[in-house]
């Protein structure tokens, strides 16, 4: 197994209802890497994650984990969907929910072993949600819910964790906490993270690799390799400028002079 990538996506085409969503996608992810899947809304990020997860079929190409073609319900891949709405009255505690991450797909009855119960507690500790263990899952705030969903996905000890826009509905403070949490997961549990986001700036400090989705294709590599005017212009099919302002990155369509004068005129717009 030495030398094989954790995840390898080769020559992937994906179409839904006769419409081509992604074309000729190639990238790879190594063990214990933090990868950002960046692109605007509707670029096809969710579709790509669903293909990697094995719940959406590809028209062409191959997705492999450890060099083996991925099958559905591969326990080495964990998944946190974009938004889950839990009924407030659901009689399920956070603890029960995380435990279901372990055995929710298994048939029949069984008492959970002490070992598994300890694993659940360990995961809740890891996402700093131990205090929430006995709350109903429907009663959590957005940030709390995101932590619990991550614990639910991590409890099976996957090697790759996919997250679909985990920051989308969070306030900046909670978003920062989730990013730090995921970073520590990468560092301490040696789990590779692939998370989608439409804004790359919050991820810049922790990201090892970028997979940039636009115009039905992707560009991947380290941040410096991908987030460049020439690479992104080729991807978009028209001229794109990449500006660096106060340590942040801004991707602007159009001619560079115009964009630069915009920055000069409205610095506040750029900084957020």
């Amino acid at each position: 197994m030495v030398g094989t990538d954790l995840l390898k996506v080769e020559d992937l085409d994906v179409s839904i209802a006769g419409r081509m969503i992604l074309r000729d996608v190639n990238f790879r992810i190594d063990h214990g890497e933090f990868t950002g899947l960046i692109g605007s809304n509707g670029a096809g990020k969710t579709t790509l994650l669903r293909v990697i997860l094995g719940v959406q079929a590809a028209a062409r190409g191959r997705v492999s984990v450890h060099g083996q073609t991925l099958t559905r319900s591969n326990s080495s891949v964990g998944y946190v969907p974009q938004k889950v709405v839990f009924e407030p009255d659901l009689p399920v505690r956070v603890r029960d929910f995380v435990a279901l991450g372990l055995d929710g797909a298994k048939l029949g009855f069984a008492r959970r072993s002490r070992q598994n119960l300890e694993l659940v507690d360990e995961m809740l500790d890891a996402v700093e949600a131990a205090a929430l263990a006995n709350r109903r899952i429907g009663s959590l705030s957005g940030g709390e819910q995101q932590r619990v969903l991550i614990a639910h996905a991590l409890v099976r000890k996957p090697e790759l964790l996919l997250l679909d826009e985990p920051l989308a509905s969070l306030d900046p403070g909670s978003a920062q906490e989730i990013i730090e949490l995921l970073h520590s997961v990468v560092v301490h549990q040696q789990v590779a993270v692939l998370m989608s986001a439409h804004e790359m700036n919050p991820l810049l400090p922790v990201m090892d690799r970028v997979v940039y989705v636009a115009n039905g294709g992707v560009a991947s590599g380290t941040t410096d390799e991908v987030v460049r005017s020439d690479v992104l212009s080729a991807l978009y099919g028209h001229h794109v400028d990449v500006l660096h302002v106060h340590g942040r990155v801004l991707v602007v369509a159009g001619e560079s002079d115009h964009a630069k004068s915009m920055v000069a005129d409205h610095p506040a717009v750029i900084v957020e």
């Binding site: 209802a17 006769g18 419409r19 081509m20 809304n41 509707g42």
Partner: peptide, 15 residues
Amino acid sequence: RVRVALSNERHAAPE
């Protein structure tokens, strides 16, 4: 729907 989907294949349809 099938007809619409086929005719849309070349143009990106709205999300």
